[in-house]
Lab assay of single mutants.
Amino acid sequence: PDFTLHWNGITIHFKGIDEEQFRHLRELLDRGVSLEELEELAKELIK
């Protein structure tokens, strides 16, 4: 499924991740993950 997340004025689209992965990403963003960390995470998910 696809998810869209609005965070700090940025709209991020996640394609092909499951709800569990999306929930994990939201928790990280709510905790204050940096954009660099988010990019690293995205690379991991894409593999």
Rank of each mutant, 00 (worst) to 15 (best):
L25P: 00
L28V: 07
L35K: 04
A42Y: 15
G9D: 05
D30P: 02
E40R: 15
L35D: 02
R26A: 13
L28P: 00
Q21C: 04
H24F: 12
E44N: 13
N8M: 07
V33K: 07
V33P: 05
R31N: 13
N8E: 09
F3H: 04
E20I: 10
F22M: 09
E36T: 13
V33T: 13
L45M: 14
R23W: 09
V33R: 05
L41F: 14
E36Q: 13
F3C: 06
I17A: 03
I12D: 01
I12E: 01
T11L: 05
L5S: 00
G16R: 02
Q21D: 12
I46N: 12
E37L: 11
T11D: 14
H6S: 13
L5V: 06
E37T: 13
R31A: 11
G16N: 13
K47E: 11
V33M: 13
H13A: 05
H24A: 12
K15I: 15
L28E: 07
T11C: 08
W7Y: 09
P1I: 14
E27A: 13
I10H: 11
K43Q: 10
F22D: 01
D18F: 04
H13P: 00
D18V: 04
R23H: 15
F14I: 15
H24Q: 15
E20V: 11
I10S: 05
D2L: 11
I10G: 02
E44D: 12
G9E: 03
D2S: 12
E40L: 14
T11A: 04
R23N: 15
E44R: 11
P1Y: 15
L29A: 11
I10E: 06
D30L: 12
E44V: 06
E19T: 05
I17Y: 02
E37A: 12
I12M: 04
S34V: 05
E37M: 11
A42H: 10
L45R: 04
L28N: 04
L35F: 10
P1W: 09
S34Y: 05
I17D: 04
E36W: 07
I17F: 05
G16A: 03
T4F: 09
H24D: 06
K15E: 15
L41Q: 04
T11V: 09
F14V: 15
E19R: 03
G9A: 01
R23D: 11
L38F: 10
R26H: 09
V33I: 11
I17H: 02
H13D: 13
E37D: 10
L35Q: 04
